[in-house]
């Protein structure tokens, strides 16, 4: 039995152990990783920077705790940028397990903005969280008519008409754009209904698993920006000058990807060698 045949019989738990060791070591040892910003991420940043203080942005946080590690850095960096710039943020969470995380992010960033810029962010005047409603497609369509149809009140059941920030805000016509951060297939509804029917500018932050599938929508102009997974979040953190967990995680990504590529190469070399010798792998 040669080296490659022995490798093919290796218990897969050794692969898990090696990967875990690489992740732990690279988390513990700090070093810089170069990050190149892609145009699809820069376009979101530029869009946010072009907005004047007092402009309204709709931030849709449609992900569950399962994708928190990838999505939270995007939420934090974009919300912090918006609030520090004095933009008004309307938040929704159309994923069932999303409201808790959206509220956590909102409260932490309100504190963080005050700490870093001295600017006090007031709920109801600078930011409002409308909460969750089921059936994202229906809710997205209804918000295009009037935010008050699906959300008569905000997450805390305060009537939208009594929230100062929502005075005169009827539907998507009153917001400059929607930044969607999602780990669910609800992104299709946002593209078809919010952008397709109501022509609202839409940018998306997606999990790594989803990202490749949505580049055609970028090419067709249905979305104007795309952040793919933790790399997208790291690129945005770099642009915004707010290094966070996504940038830190890039050094882990680099090394784990190298290990995985090495495994793939060894596996393929072993396969071809065994095939040439007439063996089976």
């Amino acid at each position: 039995m040669n080296f490659f045949e022995r490798l093919s019989l290796l218990d897969r738990r050794w692969v898990y152990l090696i990967l875990a060791a690489v992740v732990v070591i690279t988390v513990l040892i700090e070093f810089d990783t170069p990050i190149r910003v892609n145009p699809e991420v820069r376009s979101i940043y530029d869009f946010m920077e072009e907005q004047q203080p007092g402009s309204y942005i709709h931030l849709a946080i449609d992900y569950d705790p399962g994708s928190l590690a990838e999505m939270h850095p995007m939420t934090y960096v974009i919300m912090e940028q918006a609030l520090a710039k004095g933009l008004k943020v309307i938040m929704t969470a159309l994923s069932p397990n999303g409201p808790g995380m959206a509220e956590q992010a909102m409260l932490e960033i309100m504190d963080s903005v005050k700490l870093h810029t001295g600017k006090e962010v007031i709920y109801g005047e600078d930011i409002v969280f409308l909460g969750y409603k089921p059936y994202p497609g229906i809710v997205i369509l209804a918000m295009g008519q009037n935010y008050r149809l699906p959300f008569p009140g905000d997450y805390y059941n305060t009537s939208l008409d009594s929230i100062p920030m929502m005075e005169g805000i009827i539907n998507y016509d009153n917001v400059e754009g929607v930044i969607l951060i999602t780990g669910t297939s609800g992104v299709d509804f946002w593209i078809s209904y919010a952008n397709g029917r109501y022509n609202v500018p839409l940018a998306v932050g997606l999990t790594g698993v989803m990202a490749a599938d949505y580049y055609p929508y970028l090419k067709s102009g249905q979305i104007f920006g795309l952040m793919g997974g933790m790399l997208g979040a790291a690129e945005y953190e770099k642009l915004a000058g707010r290094p966070g967990r996504a940038m830190e995680a890039m050094r882990v990504q680099v090394w784990t990807h190298m290990v995985i590529i090495l495994f793939i190469l060894i596996g393929n070399i072993g396969y071809f060698i065994s095939r040439r010798r007439g063996g089976s792998v």
Binding site: L19, A20, V23, V27, G66, S67, L68, A69, E70, T207, G208, V209, G229, M230, L231, A249, V252, Q253, T256, H257, I260
Partner: peptide, 10 residues
């Protein structure tokens, strides 16, 4: 792969 590693990192 990047997505799964991100979850592990998290």
């Amino acid at each position: 792969v990047m997505g799964r590693i991100s979850l592990l990192v998290g």
